[in-house]
Design a protein around this nucleic acid. Structure first.
Lengths: 228, 228
DNA sequence: TTCATGCTGTCAGCTTAATGTCAGCTTGCT
DNA sequence: AGCAAGCTGACATTAAGCTGACAGCATGAA
């Protein structure tokens, strides 16, 4: 079993350390760079299977590293990390050829799930996908389809579905959803979550996918089974 | 036999002392911190096999300590202690990546059983589970399943079952159950316990699990055996 | 600009599930 | 038998969650 090579570009000391340890533990061969310039230089001669790239970097920011990497023709999957829950940055990153995007603070689970998805993508070609049965979520263009039929979902619905799919079959609490849907400055009621769940649920039910309510705990994604 | 390293973060003097002594006696290598900030710092460079974390801490609360620990990528199992029987806190804690949760006041037995479960989990991977025959209780999402069939239980039923499983095959008194089911401000009759037992019993019988009544003493969990 | 369109949060009223109490019954012990 | 302990169906009361309707806002076309 050959280890997968992962490059982590992150300047925050503690985060860098933690992530390095975590990825190493998960069986990746991890290299770490803490500024954009060295990362960029390293990438001119070293190939990786996946790159986790912070945007706020000293010397050369993440956007620039990514841009130059793509300019050199590399197709290595890149996952962007950023301190800001900012749609503009997400869009800019994806435009520059990032394959996925994660806003801090994030959870390790989530990051690892996404990295796995990116690598799977790398193997199969195409873009990074998370699937749940016949439901497929493409992280690079943030679209979701069921048996090749693209669902028409709003941003909120996409974000919600993404979270549910990442945690598939695990309970996701309203608080968690709230946190995932809105950034830290904006406020939102729990009822808003209910409303969004309701809207998404209606669309998913058509395809036999159920958002199950676990009273007092949250929601989880499940295949709709014939009730006995 | 190498000792397991346990970090106890608790500010209450008496409790801290008692727990430290108890865990030491049980063969753990125990370190104790009494505020969130020092615990957080310690955790940046020291690994533990399990962490018992109080939520109400000076300087940096337990949630924050946990959040930072997870953000650094640590997967060390964490058991949260809190003064409040508060569902919101429980949910929040589990969202932040706690593996189990215990409301004060608790019994030492119970705490130790849970810590053991967490450590067992650490070895086997996955989340902390308590099992009883084919019945498995997942403490991290508070769901119970029998041979992979998830049981549909209310919160009260879950709490009751959890207690019975922890003490499996030992008699649990009504008073104890009462204490475990409701927090200290709310009152509840013994009959309520009987009702809850009755409801849970009905659901468990389907799976051949019996809640046996020990007249005058309490209840215990048992496999339903053909009566002789 | 102005209007239309779609997204999304809030609200209100409704539906459903959870759960304690009670009453009357059953069980088991002496 | 007679008593105490325990059981459980029925009911009432909350609490949680759902959803249609509406309004504010952004976007884009006329």
């Amino acid at each position: 079993m050959v280890k997968l090579r992962l490059l982590l570009v992150e300047d925050d000391l503690i985060l860098k350390d933690g992530l390095e340890r975590a990825f190493t533990k998960s069986g990746y061969a991890v290299d770490v760079m803490s500024d954009g310039d060295s990362a960029n230089k390293l990438l001119t001669y070293q190939e990786y299977d996946v790159i986790v790239l912070d945007l706020g970097l000293p010397k050369l920011d993440g956007f620039e590293v990514l841009k130059r990497l793509r300019a050199r023709g590399s197709k290595t999957p890149v996952l962007i990390l950023t301190a800001l829950e900012d749609t503009r940055n997400r869009v800019k990153g994806l435009d520059l050829g990032a394959d996925d995007y994660l806003a801090k603070p994030f959870e390790l689970d989530e990051l690892e799930a996404r990295v796995r998805a990116l690598i799977r993508r790398g193997v199969s070609g195409g873009s990074a996908k998370i699937s749940f049965g016949d439901l497929v979520f493409d992280t690079s263009n943030r679209q979701c389809s069921f048996k090749n039929v693209t669902l028409s979902l709003s941003q909120r619905e996409v974000a919600l579905l993404e979270l549910l799919m990442l945690k598939a079959t695990k309970v996701v609490s309203k608080a968690k959803i709230l946190e995932h849907l809105c950034s830290w400055d904006e406020e939102m009621s729990e009822n808003a979550v209910e409303v969004n769940v309701s809207r998404l649920r209606k669309k998913l039910n058509i395809f036999g996918i159920e958002i199950r309510t676990i009273r007092g705990l949250g929601y989880l994604l499940a295949k709709l089974e014939p009730v006995d």
